[in-house]
Write a protein that binds this DNA or RNA. Sequence first.
DNA 1: TTGTAGGCGTTATCAG
DNA 2: CTGATAACGCCTACAA
Lengths: 373, 373
Amino acid sequence: MAAATMKDVAERAGVSTTTVSHVINQTRFVSEENRSKVQEAMKALGYQPNAIAKSLRQKSTNTIGLMISDIANPFFTSLIRGVEDVANAAGFNLILCNTDEKPEKEYTYLDVLQQKQVDGVIVAPTGENLDYFEALVDNGFPMVFIDRRLEGIACPAVLADNENGSYEAVSHLIGLGHRRIGIVVGLLGVTSTTERLRGYKKALAEHGLPFDKELVLPGKSKVESGREAALQLLALNARPSAIFATNNQMTIGVMRALHEQGVRCPDDMAVVGFDDFEWASAFRPLLTTVAQPVYDMGRVAAETLMACIRNKGEAGDKGGAGDKGGAGVTGKADRADAKQVITLGCTLVVRESCGAGGAAAATAESIADAGEN
Amino acid sequence: MAAATMKDVAERAGVSTTTVSHVINQTRFVSEENRSKVQEAMKALGYQPNAIAKSLRQKSTNTIGLMISDIANPFFTSLIRGVEDVANAAGFNLILCNTDEKPEKEYTYLDVLQQKQVDGVIVAPTGENLDYFEALVDNGFPMVFIDRRLEGIACPAVLADNENGSYEAVSHLIGLGHRRIGIVVGLLGVTSTTERLRGYKKALAEHGLPFDKELVLPGKSKVESGREAALQLLALNARPSAIFATNNQMTIGVMRALHEQGVRCPDDMAVVGFDDFEWASAFRPLLTTVAQPVYDMGRVAAETLMACIRNKGEAGDKGGAGDKGGAGVTGKADRADAKQVITLGCTLVVRESCGAGGAAAATAESIADAGEN
DNA sequence: TTGTAGGCGTTATCAG
DNA sequence: CTGATAACGCCTACAA
């Protein structure tokens, strides 16, 4: 049997579909008698409102898209959780899309999400498809960038303070006496990569250390390339005494390389990783990391998107005439929002992977708290 | 400006909406001339078909729901990836739902997904809401269980071979000479928990070891309760020489407890964990684990669901009359599918966390391959 | 306090 | 080879 519709409920209850609709949505007064008749009918028929039909009418789906590079990357995992929690609380659902850092997949998913009429999108952009993104934003489509942003696109972005996180990590190493610090950088063309490298440079400069290109290795944000980068650093004539791996995947690669080469950490090589993870406090070496506020990034991004969606709904109600006059305040807020970049601070979680001075440095450097995830 | 509709395209191209529709879906012949006119019009207007309207007509959304306990649990992460890859390749999208093991959340999400007219659902059931699930299945709603199943519900399930994985892990420990082996078990009332405990008992029995209730501690599948369970095991008068932690979260808790108590692994305590993870090969102790085929579980579950959805579509076309006669083969397959349980084997990944005999045992026991994730 | 009717953007069934 | 036209299930003026 096909699912019951409002019409079926109306017939069974002996009222019009209008009344049924109003009972469901509590959108106008219905007599006690009719209301209970309708409710009984709904229960008897196991009626479930058809959200698709509703969406077609109302032009809103209560669904948002989430486009990230790879859900299998634990970095995104808590982030998604943050998004989903907020979305769910607001009555929204999430459509999940893995771009794998491939612009074509990103492009296709954007199309699909448009077609499915999602009310908005949270996206960690690959760095391409600039025109598409720009068109969407110009068109007033609610969108929020997360983790990275696209320069020149006026769209809210929720980012970690990559530069400062990086700066603190490297300063920590320098404070422990390290003078030659290798860095394994991630995917090029992505803002987070640039910012983390900038923090590295800044820390060196502030402490009067030279910037040596030889110590900067590309890791493509992947385990295997992180491993290769570490091997190259280890093979250097003037081997560094510390390695800074700028994301979780590359950190794993670096640790594997050390392991393979019989290089002990922290005894022979200090290591700091970007991205904290739950295992870090249970296995050796107890890794010092830069913890991103991943859950909060997701949460804030979702809240921002919800706000955009609400704003748009209201703006639409008022029509184009609302541009001048009393609506100015809202208009201003809209403009401000459009360029808003929200940066959340990272936390340096000092453990034991940075060398002998670790314990002393931990207190001297930064009272960091990993928190309970 | 509002998004262009088929009507707009039709007008601009000087044809009917019917023709536009057929051009888009390639569902009947359209003259070369008209086709190109339509295509031009679509491009000029930036036309995107409205999937919601399409879904309303066709009663299919090309969307499936995925209900798991918590996306922040890395176990589910690769699993989701498997689902998404298959779904995406088949032109389906994924709505993600975290139940947090809460039956109420599960219930609500089932409602929402029904309302959003998803074509099917993959779910790791909490163990409750039996009636709801039964009603759905009886109603022919495409559903596949993953990771666990609900007894008595005739619905395909894709599971890891929990019992055997557990059995092998414990046998491995016994083979290394361990006689008292503690086990930290997960959430009760979930089939995977039961099966893993059964494997433990079976291994003991087969090797003539007594089953000691004292050595079975509840860990609720969480880090903190895993830690507490381990502390209790450590406090035992007759302390075990090995601990088997039956999921990744509890493994972390166990390792933390050892760390806190200054108990070295594997020197003072052997450990095996259920669920492998990428870090396991890069940090110490190099943990011996039971690796579940997570990606494949997701993949197979999605393929199974796609098959169910396709079957349903075809069955619907043929109407109720297809029950007897030539359609018998399909009918039989349907029945068989309905009770299908697909079990995928686990792999014991032998590393160094099980005691001195580890290296020798590794070859003797099982040639396990962690694979490159 | 309730009902009628039109339309959201498609697709499918007819007729041309 | 193409086009009217009626649904799909719901919401929402407008009317009573």
